[in-house]
Write a protein that binds this DNA or RNA. Sequence first.
DNA 1: GTGCATGCAAAGTCTTTGCAGGGAA
DNA 2: TTCCCTGCAAAGACTTTGCATGCAC
Lengths: 150, 150
Amino acid sequence: MKRVIADVEEKLRAGEYKLTSRREHILRVLLENKDKHLSAEEVYNLVKKRAPDVGLATVYRTLELFLLFDIIHSIDFGDGRKRYEFCSSGTDGHHHHHLICTRCGKIIEVNEDLLEDLETRVSKEHDFKIENHQLKIFGTCRECTEKINK
Amino acid sequence: MKRVIADVEEKLRAGEYKLTSRREHILRVLLENKDKHLSAEEVYNLVKKRAPDVGLATVYRTLELFLLFDIIHSIDFGDGRKRYEFCSSGTDGHHHHHLICTRCGKIIEVNEDLLEDLETRVSKEHDFKIENHQLKIFGTCRECTEKINK
DNA sequence: GTGCATGCAAAGTCTTTGCAGGGAA
DNA sequence: TTCCCTGCAAAGACTTTGCATGCAC
């Protein structure tokens, strides 16, 4: 954890930005909720618990900063707000696969990268230099299927 | 074209809705711009050209209606607004692959469905009943790559 | 002292809702 | 007449911006 924070600090420093205490709070919240896909407001509420004098604008500005430095990614599940997740190092964000249950809203992460072949093919065919991708699969999760069948 | 409109009319009728003239105008705009991924406002502006007395609210309400009946799909390219595209019949919307150029914003459609294998695997592994998917690939298009290399 | 960081409130953008008028069956 | 459809304006949800203060170096 400390290692990660130090890495982020260095990244920001390289761009002439500081990891202030507020920014660190925000970073910690994101780290501790890696699997949760928090919205800006959810981050804000969690940060407030440990640093009550932080403003919502700061959260937005910090998230934007983190996005700029590829410290986090934003995703959109179609519910009208952006959600954010920390980029685990080493993967370059190349594992953004989510199963979204259209009944209960649950989001299941699929962490393997299953698209290598496909990317190679598409990239060649369209002369397109791929930087990143997002795959969202909509459907019904196990629990909801069971509920329906009862 | 007329065939498609008649199909839509029937779909709506089955749900006790009518294909009014305004709705038909909106549908036509969507049909004539299948490849454009229009936003609500863009639809509104195009509709206004042929039916100047249509309100923006009606466009939103109609798009919502069409979504409900799976006549169109909505996509989000991360620019803060939803975009809509007509669902070509027969494919069940299973061809939503887009290459998004992060430099010029161009969107290239990839119309084959390349995810069958992957879906089968994921579906089994997580007991997840797949209904639909969206794949967005971010990167740099041919033209922008050329510009950079100049 | 200088300059970025920040809280607060205001403004902005996209979308939805309330309401009363209008039209088709 | 009845009930859905619609325009307009207002409200709502999320995000960004302006500005003056504050803090670190």
